[in-house]
Design a protein around this nucleic acid. Structure first.
Lengths: 212, 212
DNA sequence: ACCTGAACACCGTTCAAGT
DNA sequence: ACCTGAACACCGTTCAAGT
């Protein structure tokens, strides 16, 4: 049976999770599929096209329903943001892939639209709703991006960012104090705090926009 | 006169601005410097080391004083965020470079510490201050990342994200309505709105944390 | 319709040897 | 100390030709 586009994208996804985005080459993928490199270009117009397909698929894993159905828009916004983070975290280099994707497929557009639909329930006008949605997506992308790029070189996996050995605690007192009390759960808590901040801010901002 | 590390980083910076991160190769850089590829490795331990140096330099362009000296912490936070965005925007692919850098140099650490110092003036404890700083940096990175990757393939430069020709307005009504009223200034306004949301949120969040 | 063979124009990195 | 020459082990992509 001949290959299909789906098979190529499937294999690319498995390979991504196994070896990461940097090692994911078309030649390696071809080997995995038992085919010559050129064969891929029958199913995919370029490597970027393939990566876009992966990005789409990752966002497609966001569930159709997040959080309780009748919830307030603020709560639903948080649920959507958490779901976006989870979809990215479910695949190695997921955030980098999403950030690097050039094409806006239906899943990306759909997610953005869903988010705006929820935010519009605040009563704010379109421009404010759009800015709010953009802000949520930028935050989640930025957060998961650093979360997933924590230990790319050293595989110690111990602390979150490999602080250089010559870290001068005296020059960076706040940072040093914080790093001293880092725990394996810090990342999750920090995301939760960031969402709190965002949702509080959205409540104020969209509230004002709705009243105007 | 022999080359020095500074010359290599200088040339890499010029090349980055000219041709972008994807086209910036060690071989091309060597040609630019009138030297063989291998020669670079006397001054730089790897390409990643070079990119880290560029990232450090970009963050080093954030001015030492941002905004009015005696300003409230909320205002200073906004000023720092704007300064970070401007430093990134000043160089082609600046955000991608920052996001992809693996080493935490003194400028990166210093910026994070400065931000925490400002946020700590809210009276909130360390953990809340750290989460707040992380949130601001994640947002700015995420925002500029999409801002700079707007038209990577097509060079039309017209609208912000190249919406696919088959964009189905009926399926994505909110998005479609918003895109219809896009203007060249939207990006700047959206960032300003995002900062508003963030600062409002920080005021609530850090206020509660300080009171607890 | 789908794939091979073979090439084109590149990469990052290493390292003996030169000066 | 700094660089060349030359190699190693890769890349993404194209395209005639095969089946």
């Amino acid at each position: 049976m001949p290959l299909q586009r789906t098979d190529v994208v499937d294999a690319a996804m498995r390979l991504l999770d196994d070896i990461g985005l940097d090692a994911l080459s078309t030649r390696r993928l071809a080997t995995e599929l038992g085919v010559r490199p050129g064969a891929l270009y029958w199913h995919v117009s370029s490597k970027q096209d393939l990566l876009d397909a992966l990005a789409e698929r990752i966002l497609g894993e966001v569930p159709a329903e997040v959080g309780p159905p009748g919830a307030h828009w603020a709560e639903q916004t948080g649920a959507l943001a958490r779901a976006m983070r989870e979809a990215m975290l479910a695949h190695r280099d997921g955030a980098r892939l999403l950030a690097g994707a050039s094409a806006l497929g239906p899943n990306r557009l759909g997610f953005a639209d869903r988010l705006m639909e929820v935010l519009s329930r605040s009563g704010a006008p379109l421009a404010a709703t759009a800015a709010a949605g953009d802000t949520v997506m930028s935050y989640v992308t930025g957060f998961v991006l650093q979360e997933q790029s924590s230990p790319p070189p050293g595989v110690d996996g111990g602390d979150p960012r490999a602080v250089p050995p010559s870290f001068d605690a005296g020059r960076f007192p706040y940072l040093a104090a914080w790093l001293a009390q880092w725990s394996p759960d810090t990342s999750r808590q920090t995301f939760a705090a960031g969402l709190d901040i965002l949702v509080e801010g959205l409540t104020v901002y969209l509230g004002k926009a709705a009243a105007a």
